[in-house]
Every structure is written in C-alpha cells, then in structure tokens.
Design a protein around this nucleic acid. Structure first.
Lengths: 354, 354
DNA sequence: ACAATTATCGTGTACGTACACAATTCCTCT
DNA sequence: AGAGGAATTGTGTACGTACACGATAATTGT
C-alpha cells in the first residue's frame, strides 16, 4: 500500500491546464450556467483528454446529501416468512448505502387487507420520501400510489411483481411465465407416457393473484409446445388452511390413479407436502416455490423434489441499489431486471444463500 | 434530497463531549500511542455510546491510499471461454473499487503449461502487489507461490479451486463433491430401474485434475447412499479432441444398450453432445458443466439436459471484493465461500446472467 | 526548585469536490 | 468615455478524517 502518486489529475489539474479556476471547471462538469462557450469547449476537451472521473468520495463528502428511501412491502406473517428475505436484502443494501447518506424507512402492509395497504401508502406519502421501493401486491391500489408518486416526481421501483404501464424507474423480479415453464420441464423429465400431472393453486383470492395464473399458463404452455399427451389438470383451492386443502386434494387424489406429479404454484407447497406425507403418498413428484424453512424441511425429507426460487433477497437488495444508483447518479438503471430462476433440490439447498 | 441534518456525530462531536481535541479522538480510534489511559477510556465510552462509525469516504479521502491488486488466472483459450466469466467479474469489481484507489493488474497463464504459470508468477512477485487473487490450477506451483506471498505478508485469495493448508485469506469457489452429488440426483430423477449411467472424465492430465475426481466421487456416493442398484461406470478419456473422444465413446456406447444417462465431469460436455448428435442418440440424458456458448447451444437443441454452473463471474467479483474489504478494513472476510450450485436448463438459461 | 525529559494533547493543513459569494471582464447604452 | 448591468470567472470555506508538528502538562533527575 502506498500513497497515491501526486497524480496530475482532478479538477485542480484540469483548471491548471485550461488556465481557469477550479470553480469554472466545476461549473463545466455539472454543466451549470455561467460559462462562456469558448472556455467550456476548452475545459471539456481537457476532461476528455484526461479521461477525468470525479472522485466520488470527495464529491459525496462535499455535498453530504441525505436521502430518505421508503419501502412498502408486505409484513412478514406467521403464515409465511417469504417477505423476510427481501427484507434482509433491503437491510443489507441499507447498511451499504448508509455511509452515503441513505436512510431507509419501512412501511408494512397486511397481504389480506387492502385497507392496511392504503393506510401504509398514505403514511408513506405523508413522509415525502426521496424514493420508493414497492411490492405492488394489490394492483389497483398500487397503480394509484404509483401515479401519485409519478406526479410528485419521486422515483419508484417495483419488486416481486410488475405493474404494467406505470412510469416507474425499474422492475426487479421474476418472470413468472417462464418459471412455470421450468417447473413443467423438470416434471416432464421424470414422466412416463401414461402419467398424469396436477396443478394446484392455493389462494384465498385467486382472481387477484395474477402471479399464480401466469405460472400456470407457462406450465401448460410447455406441455403444449412439447406436443405432449400428458393429462394436465388444475385444481383451485381458495382456502389456505390445511384441512381445507386436504379435503380438496384428497378428492382429486382418489380419482386420479395415474397422478405422478404435482405443481403447486406458490410457496404453500409445504401444505401439500404435509398432506401427502400424512397419507403416505411418497411416489408423487412435488414441485413448488420458495426457499422457506418449512419447504426446505420437506425437501430434505424428500416429500418435495424441486423448489423454484427467485432470489428474494437479491430483489430487495437490487431494488434499493437501483434507487441509490439512480439518485446518486452512479450509473444508469435497467428498466427490467429479471431474476435468475433457481432450482433448489435436496443436494444443493445448503449452498443457496450466503 | 436534503442536506444532512447537522448531526451531532463524527469525531468532532466526540471530541466536544469528551472535552478533548479531535486529534486525541483520532488517536483513540486508531489506537495509536500517546493517550493516557483515563482519556482513552472516556473517549472509548463515548464512541460506544454514540455507536460511532467513521465516515469511510472522508477517511479514504484523507489517506488517499492506493493499492495494486494482482490477478493470476488462466488465459481465455480458444478451447474454452470459461475464464472469460471470472474475468468479467474481476473487471466489474475493478471498476467499482477504482474510485477507492484500487488498481487491478492481470497476469495470465496457459492451462497447458506450468512454465507459463511460473513465468507469470515471477513477474507478479517482481511487481510486489498489495494483494493477490489466484486460480491455483497447478497445485505444487501454486503452493510455492502462496508460500512466498505469505512470507511477504501479501494477502491471497483463491478462486475456482482450493488449496489445502495454505495460509490464505479466503477461498471462493465451488464445492465440487456436492456438485457431483447434485448431478447424480438430477439424473436419478429420470431413471428407470433398469437404466445404466456413465461418467466421462475428459482431461489430458487426469492425475492432476483433482476437480474431476472430486465430482466423480460425489456422483457415485449419491447412488451409494440412495441404495440404488443402478450400474454406474466410468470412462477416462485423456485427449480433448473430438476424434479421440468419439472413438472412446463409441466403444462404450456399442457395449451399453441400457445406457440412459451420461455425466461429463467438466465443461467439455459439448464434445459429447456433438458426438451423440452425429450418431442420432437423442434418448440419452446428458449432464455437464458450465455456461459456455457451445454448451448453451446444445442445451437449446436439447442434446444437453442439465448444465451445472457455479457462478464463475461472481467468483471473480467476490474474490476482488474480499481483498478490498480486507485491506480497506471494510469488514471481515469469510475464510471459505462456497458458491451456490446452479442448475441450468433450456427453460431458465436466459435469465442466468444479468 | 529548576531544567530536562517524556507523556499527553491540541492545532493546522491536506485530501478532492461543491458551492456561495466576491471579483473581474465584457457589453450596451447614453 | 464612462456608468450600469450582465456575463463570466476566481476565491474561500466546508465536508469528515488523517497525520505531522507544535504546545502543554506530568514526571524525573539533580
């Protein structure tokens, strides 16, 4: 480690070469007004020549800007700890950006209550943050919020699911259709010609759960494209309690002797796993979503074969980082960032996090 | 965006509260000599109380340290562009750390030539870098280099493969054994009881290629643990040309009517794919390694079913970052970081990079 | 008790950039 | 030509920390 050579660089050197003051150089760099065209040209030329990159640290230090980011996502519920993962990523990003003056404030809503969403959204608007990270679970309510933020010129990033036609800065999350296709491929690789397949949607409000529908669509399309004759049926269960699911499921199981594989379109796959286990149905290939404790347990016990996972932690992390990069002009931000679609099995789950 | 509130924080505030000068506070923070025990206690207490975190930017700015990092990895060969991925990650990290005064210099060696490794290593030592990132392909030569660096107190990070008993800062790379197990699981999920499986090691120097052996070991162990009766045989091919591989492979194929799946223990799986394609053997499940152009092509054409991949880009990125964090005391560095073991198929490869 | 040390502490300047304000130049118009 | 005003440019201070150096206080020795 050594001291940096007293490099001939920086605004000072540029000023020297251009025979102007550093104040003028500064004006050119931020193209603020008050510089004659001639000197502007001269300074710009030297900046180009030297390939000058402003020292971010000094710059940040001098401006000591401070930003408030607002994060509006579902609360971690007893039901599922899915949202703890994005939260972890968000907190990690918060730590890393804290020294640059970013303060992250959380607002939580209940996934079963649009009212709670609206309340949280209002509170958020009231605080007038500089940027917003949003998981738009409720389509209309979220669109309303997005419109207001757009009006206020507050940059907005979506995570976990997208909202069409919004004037948002970026979307970071999964491609749901494709993850359905992947599930279908994985299942098809274990299928014999005579086997049947079942899709299970478990949601108390399926109409609004565009998530599940998109995955189901991708799943079916795969078999279609493959020209397969496999019988793929769907069952919708609009209650999330074990008993309710059990009742519906058993009815299907009893009438489907050739059932070989089940695709559960969300993280509630552990409910299905438990039911299959209780009824000793170990010969069914079970595929579902998300790296949750309960799911991993069934992965280990081989009740679940594949979990599909879309890096929830990274979604939160990248969401905050996108806002940071945008507001601090670190770099441009991509409009859509689709997460890799990870396949988790009993043999690789241990290395998944880090 | 607003100015930071004139927060009561920073060395100045600490100094005020402790009734000392900021010079003294500075001495306590870096526990340099010249502070009485009493005031040291007092200042430390206040630092704790305020949960003071020094402003990294200001600190870096004031010290304006400059570091030279050396990277010693295989050159990207015509044979395989695998090493272009770690390189990309390294370059990305270089960009991000450049503003903190990190200069990354590359040294490349030829995977077929120990001499080239030694030459590059000598050149590197001659440049006396502040830190080294090394892909230790040649075990003994690398150990020698590691020892010298240790003596010079230059921190060293391994990527891609580990070297036992070295006094290195960290290892960042795959768990090879486990990736072999995963390949076995994937294959087993498509296997009928009567099917046979083949492992192919393609390497001109298998004795030294501990990589492949570890993967093979994991693969076999999986079937063993599962109590499977599947016949798993191995063929070693010590030439990497298509013709040579073809000859060996065809001999096996002819005598193995029940062969259902092949596991190629490295990225040369595309050679096998080509041969299978040329001989119209489309009913064989083929599993191999690495996200290379050639491999992806065969993944798309369904000659290859699964590719296992260990985030080579991240390995490079994290390697540089580990050195950066260590030398700039950003945070502690984990001794071993095992990459997630990713499964790539025709249905998710498009989202793998980003 | 006083000087000579040594231990402890405070001050000033620097890092590279941002920005407010002061200073200078350049026009315009009478 | 000179005043007035706008356009352009220069200067000084600040950001929070590091560190060299000078200043002060405590200790020792005579």
């Amino acid at each position: 480690m050594k001291k940096a050579a007293t490099e001939l660089t920086g605004v000072k050197e540029i000023a020297r070469r251009a025979n102007v003051s550093i104040g003028t150089v500064d004006r050119v760099i931020h193209n603020r007004a008050g510089v004659s065209e001639k000197t502007k040209q001269k300074v710009t030329a030297i900046i180009e020549e030297l390939n000058f990159q402003p020292n971010k640290m000094a710059s940040l230090l001098a401006t000591r800007k401070s930003m408030n980011f607002a994060v509006l996502i579902p609360a971690v519920s007893a039901d599922t700890d899915y949202w703890s993962f994005p939260l972890t990523g968000i907190e990690q990003a918060a730590v890393e950006t804290r020294q640059f003056g970013v303060m992250v404030k959380h607002y939580f809503y209940d996934l079963d209550s649009k009212t709670s969403f609206n309340n949280a959204a209002n509170e958020l608007l009231n605080d007038a943050p500089d940027a917003v990270l949003l998981a738009p679970s409720f389509v209309e309510e979220s669109a309303l919020l997005a419109a207001k933020l757009d009006e206020l010129n507050i940059p907005l990033v979506f995570i976990n699911s997208d909202l069409a036609d919004q004037n948002n800065l970026a979307y970071i999350g999964p491609d749901l259709y494709q993850s359905g296709r992947l599930a279908a491929q994985l299942i098809s690789l274990s299928l014999q010609p005579q086997d049947d397949v079942l899709i299970i949607n478990i949601s108390s409000d399926l109409k609004n759960d565009h998530h599940l529908v998109r995955k189901e669509h991708g799943f079916k399309k795969f078999f279609e494209d493959a020209g397969s004759n496999t019988k793929v049926s769907t069952v919708n269960i609009n209650e999330t309690k074990l008993n309710a699911v059990e009742e519906s499921l058993l009815r299907v199981l009893d009438t489907s002797p050739a059932l070989k594989a089940i695709f559960v379109t969300n993280s509630r796959v552990n409910i299905v796993a438990e039911i299959l286990k209780n009824h000793n149905r170990n010969n069914i290939l079970l595929v579902g979503y998300d790296f949750l404790k309960k799911n991993i347990d069934y992965l280990v016990s081989q009740q679940i074969t594949y979990l599909i996972c879309q890096r929830p932690k990274e979604q939160g992390y990248l969401g905050i980082m996108a806002l940071y990069k945008h507001l601090f002009k670190v770099s441009d931000v991509e409009k859509s960032v689709y997460m890799p679609i990870d396949i988790i099995t009993r043999e690789n789950y241990r290395f998944y996090n880090s």
